[in-house]
């Protein structure tokens, strides 16, 4: 096994299991639809809230889709094989996160303009919303991988993972929606983008350290 053959295999799994990805995107869409239906469909409510709604939906969809990230590997024994392969498990985790992130972020970025139009996102804000998604979602995925490794041995881990991981998503969501509000009211926002990027970088350091610990402890 090499890093490259692992990467190829991960891409192939993602492709063969594309229904999981479709489900996560449908979930993303449904959460968004909940807001006009459940709160208020008027432009007065939706326009200022649009960025926040899209971000919350993206965070929830990320947790839901990542929960099963290591589950199949754990069940069929390939996780064990990865751990004894002699390759660095930290790199393997990063590769896996990369594949999952790419699989999710591309359709997410394609859907975001459509939903922002439906939620009456103010003009000129879309670009910043996309940038925050691009900068912030790596953090969501990297932190999410820690949660996924914690709950890998549980049959019903989604709820627990939400409870564990969502609090760590708060800063990313807060700074992203703040950046969107800032640009909507004509304030500078580049500092906020830098903070989002910094949080993602911190997650990039933490995830490869913490995820292998939980994975190893789960396979015993």
């Amino acid at each position: 096994m090499t890093y490259f053959s692992y990467f190829k295999a991960e891409c192939l799994v993602l492709f063969r299991r594309k229904q999981n990805l479709v489900n996560a995107l449908l979930f993303f869409a449904l959460v968004i639809v909940l807001f006009p239906l459940g709160v208020d469909p008027s432009k007065a409510f939706l326009a200022p809230a649009a960025g926040g709604i899209i971000w919350c939906a993206a965070a929830l969809a990320t947790v839901i889709s990542l929960e099963s990230m290591f589950k199949e590997d754990y069940a069929d024994g390939s996780l064990e094989q990865l751990l004894v392969s002699g390759l660095s498990i930290s790199w393997l985790v990063l590769l896996k996160v990369l594949v999952h992130w790419l699989g999710m972020i591309i359709p997410l970025l394609l859907l975001t303009p459509i939903f922002s139009e439906m939620l009456f996102l103010p003009d000129g804000v879309l670009g910043v919303l996309m940038t925050t998604l691009l900068l912030g979602t790596p953090g969501l995925f990297l932190i999410g991988s820690i949660g996924a490794s914690l709950t890998v041995s549980l049959r019903q881990g989604a709820l627990l993972m939400l409870l564990l991981i969502l609090p760590f998503y708060f800063p990313i969501i807060i700074f992203s929606t703040s950046a969107i509000q800032a640009v909507a009211s004509g304030l500078p926002y580049s500092g906020l983008l830098a903070i989002i990027g910094a949080i993602s970088l911190l997650a990039l350091v933490m995830s490869p350290l913490m995820t292998p610990i939980c994975l190893k402890a789960s396979v015993r």
């Binding site: 295999a9 192939l12 799994v13 063969r16 299991r17 199949e72 069940a75 069929d76 024994g77 390939s78 064990e80 094989q81 004894v84 002699g86």
Partner: peptide, 16 residues
């Protein structure tokens, strides 16, 4: 790096 391990769970991907 020197060993090969075949366990109860075979480590084969069912979608492959």
């Amino acid at each position: 790096k020197q060993s090969l391990y075949i366990s109860h769970a075979l480590g084969l991907k069912s979608v492959f």
